[in-house]
Simulated scan of single mutants.
Amino acid sequence: MKTIAIIPARGGSKRLPGKNILPLGGLPLLAHSILYAKANSDIVDEVYVSTDDNQIKEVALTYGAKVIDRPASISGDLELTISSLQHVLKTIDSDVENVVLLQPTNPLRPVNLLTQCFQKYIEDNLGSLFTVSQNHHKLGKINNGTFVPFNYEIGQRSQDLEPLFFENGLLYISKSKLILEGKIISENAVPYIVNHLFANVDIDTKEDFEYAEYLLNKNKK
């Protein structure tokens, strides 16, 4: 049973140029996900970075990942992640059973998270698993200038809200055959709840990056 990690890291970020190689805690952003995968070598047999960018490719190789050159045709702003995963699987032409997707924009993960998730994935014979976190906000919509509550009633206490969860992006585990069929998360995928500050980090802007830096430094202390 072969398990690989795939880290999609294209160039050309508009809101935060060069974000995948910006230094976070002294390491390029991308390196955090590579090193996390390599630290779980008892689970992950090989680590692949899919990229269309030469600088990202150089960083990936420096930190011990294998690189799959992503074609321009699947490197656009609107291209779905599934395209890069399928391209990696078809390119390596190897007998891969499981894929761990690590997004470089979620660089901070609890140390034992992959071990815990993979154990459940194997023991329960799952097709896919992904991490979620609880949302404690009072949410609503604005219709014609009026706020309409979605998950609560006006005056209701926050602690009495019905639990809602969001896909935090920390990690995904899927059967390779599911990905080749066009899905990362199946209809019956199991959500793995993660209540950790790291789950709030998803880097897209300068402010996101600064928050990740703050959490990283705080965690070191």
Rank of each mutant, 00 (worst) to 15 (best):
L108V: 10
L113M: 09
L27R: 12
V132P: 03
L139G: 01
R109T: 13
P17G: 11
N200V: 01
S50H: 04
P71L: 08
Y48R: 01
F150R: 10
L22H: 05
I82P: 06
Y192D: 04
I122K: 13
I74R: 11
A31L: 02
E79P: 00
D208S: 12
P104F: 13
K218E: 14
P23W: 05
V44D: 00
L80V: 06
P191S: 07
S83L: 15
H136A: 07
L80Q: 15
Q159P: 00
N98F: 15
E153R: 13
V49T: 04
L27N: 02
V59T: 15
K175E: 09
K14V: 15
D124F: 07
T62V: 09
Y214C: 04
N151T: 06
T62G: 07
N40K: 05
I21K: 04
Q119L: 05
K177R: 13
Y63L: 05
I43P: 01
V99D: 08
V59S: 09
Q103R: 11
K141T: 10
K138V: 00
L197C: 06
L22M: 14
P104K: 13
R157W: 02
L22K: 15
K66T: 01
F118Y: 15
D69A: 12
D204T: 09
T205R: 11
L102I: 08
Y172Q: 13
L108K: 11
K2N: 12
T115Q: 12
V88E: 02
Y192L: 10
P71S: 10
I185G: 02
L170E: 04
L27Q: 01
C117V: 13
V132H: 04
D93L: 01
T51E: 02
K183N: 14
R70E: 10
I68K: 03
V47K: 06
P110L: 03
S94L: 14
I21N: 03
R10P: 02
H136P: 01
N217R: 15
D202W: 14
T81H: 05
V148C: 03
I184A: 04
N125V: 04
L216Q: 07
L27Y: 11
V148D: 06
L164H: 10
M1G: 06
P23C: 00
F147A: 11
H136I: 12
K90Y: 07
I21T: 13
